[in-house]
Design a protein around this nucleic acid. Structure first.
Lengths: 209, 209
DNA sequence: AAAAATTAGTTAATTAAATCACAAAATAGT
DNA sequence: ACTATTTTGTGATTTAATTAACTAATTTTT
């Protein structure tokens, strides 16, 4: 029987991982589902069910004791593809791009940004230890087996996306404020500050269930 | 009978608004639910249902014609609280903070960032037309009726959050990589780049329903 | 002006997700 | 070793969300 992880569960995994990393730093070895609830706000029973998807055969949790923080991080990292060390490229090295790049250097969590591209010739060279190429050289310098691109540009968006897909990119983290279309099989994960604020405003001002 | 907007619907409103703004810029006057599907990937029937929550009495859509882009934006803006023009403050004017600030200047969509704070005295002054104060002056210079703060710092997070809540902040957009706790009634909306990438990787590599 | 073609709105059915309730497992105390 | 306590894991249930099926309104065409 093939286990299928639900969308909702999938979306919670990164939340757990973040919380667990924090706990690991604080030296915590075991964690209860009730403690994870306190930190994440996700119901403990939901957490327990989610975590059962992590291990194929044996379970990570021990009744009366909780989960091993270390093992849980391991399991989550595996399913989240962190261990794959996927090469990632960053398109656009403005303020936002730089912020992402900087963060990536500090915490080696998902894959690794192996190259950046910008339309400004002056930015060519290196930044936070990562090579910055001109966008015209994208095809020439594209890293082998790279499937993920972070898009932090504001111009020529669709054109850039098309070029990336031609190069085999399968996932795009989108910081753009522009709509673009992708081909079948290519995933887009939008990250939108304004949308986040709007959601927040809505939460504060309206009734929801 | 009081209409209660479901969580899921609420989360989609900003998506619609973004798509509609784009359409408005392109000069589109009417839009079909099927067209919104093409752009957002959200099922047309789901879209139609969602949009019924917008208007109390009359409906925005016309059979055979579609929805008025203008009216829809109006309705969404209203329910999303965009019209409230909420004052927002930004804590942390590094690369990320600057990126947010810059974007906010360009597209006047949610409220307005009315002030920034940073721990670096050198940054005091003005940036993209917004005053930058030292974080020590937070209490002294805190804008009246401000309920929303964007957190783009990496140090003294919990301390800063506590101070913000003391000043009456009810919603926090969190770009921090640190866990912090908030009081009852305070909402936090995390925006996490790494989590976004992880979700993406997971989507690409695993089976989901 | 009538007929045909669209397309929004809505009720009903389905599917997905969250929660409850409890059994089984592990620990800690006696 | 036994008992009490804690806490996980899971089948059953409930709740939420989505989709399908249909109705009725509006426009466009003939």
């Amino acid at each position: 029987m093939e286990k299928v992880i639900s969308k909702a569960t999938m979306a919670r995994f990164p939340v757990y991982l973040k919380a667990l990393r924090q706990m690991q730093v604080e030296g915590k070895e075991n964690v209860l589902s009730s403690e994870l609830y306190e930190v994440t706000g996700i119901q403990d029973t939901t957490i327990r069910r989610d975590l059962t998807y992590l291990s194929k055969d044996e379970n990570f949790g021990k009744p009366g004791k909780g989960y091993s923080v270390k093992h849980l991080i391991g399991g989550l990292s595996e399913v989240l593809g962190v261990g794959l060390d996927s090469p990632i490229i960053l398109i656009g090295v403005g303020n936002l791009g730089s912020a992402i790049l900087k963060y990536n250097r500090w915490q080696y969590t998902v894959g690794k940004i192996v190259g950046c591209y910008d339309q400004d010739r002056n930015k060519e060279g290196e930044r936070f230890g990562v090579k910055v190429h001109h966008i015209d050289d994208l095809e020439k310098t594209f890293p082998k087996d790279c499937e993920i691109a972070i898009l932090a540009i504001s111009e020529n968006v669709q054109e850039t996306v098309d070029r990336l897909m031609d190069l085999g990119v399968k996932g795009i983290v989108d910081f753009t404020h522009t709509h673009f279309t992708v081909r079948e099989g290519v995933e887009v994960k939008p990250v939108d500050v304004v949308a986040a604020i709007q959601e927040l405003v809505l939460k504060i001002h309206t009734n929801t269930n």
